[in-house]
Amino acid sequence: MLKGTVSIAAASALSYLLYDGTGPGRASEEKKLVTLPDFSLPELGGKMSLVTGADRKKSLNLALKALGGIETFISKGDRVLLKVNAAFASPPILSATTNPEVVTEVARLCFKAGAASVVVTDNPINHPESCFFLTGIEAAARSAGATLLLPNESFFHPTTIPDATLIRSWPILWDPFQGIDKVIGIAPVKDHHRSGASMVMKNWYGLLGGRRNIFHQDIHTIIKELAMLVRPTLVILDGTQTMMTNGPTGGSLTDLKQTNTMIVSTDQVAADAFGATLLGRNTAELPFIAKAEAAGVGTADYEALQPIRLNTA
């Protein structure tokens, strides 16, 4: 009787000591709010080049050369992050993701300019390893000596954008940006069922963590806020092949059109505004462009940047 009573008392005392009255807190709340640095080079102002040609590598090199070369943007010792679109585990021929040839060439040029490191990343929710592998981006990054960073739950930290309505204490892919000096966004031109188009600004969607699909209900606002979130050094919009219909996944080669245009700009709004023309759409049909412009991210009047137009032929 005495032994039983003592045992019950001891167990109760231990339970009381181990009891956590507050319970576990949400992981995102435990982490401090973070803010992405501004990676842009304001002294350069708005710059844009538009190169016509079917060869991505040639077009890219000519487009960068027109803006003074990659050295204008990347300095010796820079640690560079390439934000690609690896959203789907689909093959390169479908142009649903960033073309691997562009990834290789941009990484190579960064190293040539003296970059200390080049990181390639994105947050495809479903099987990131398959997405990077099947899109060819993994091999492209490695072949140029770049480091591929697959998303990991611990990489995400909450951020809040001042004056934003959607991105408030929302987790973003943060860790890959640690120690980064320059950011280059690389995206294909695509139709998008919800937003009308997926280009460089929509490409930042891949930085969001959490149940980000809820933002599809207010897609134009979230794209605007993403453009406010990321101030890149440079954006590259690959319009060599444009997904004209059935985006953002596509699936059939008949969804694509050979539009033979490479767009390089310091102004992501201007890049998207021009990209819209490849889709046969105007900015009024893509409200996120006007919203981003109104938020002060850039200009929809890409002609105001006096883009340099060249042809690889």
Partner: peptide, 11 residues
Amino acid sequence: LSDKINGKAEL
């Protein structure tokens, strides 16, 4: 569904 097909899910 959107984890797999992203913005096409709404369709």
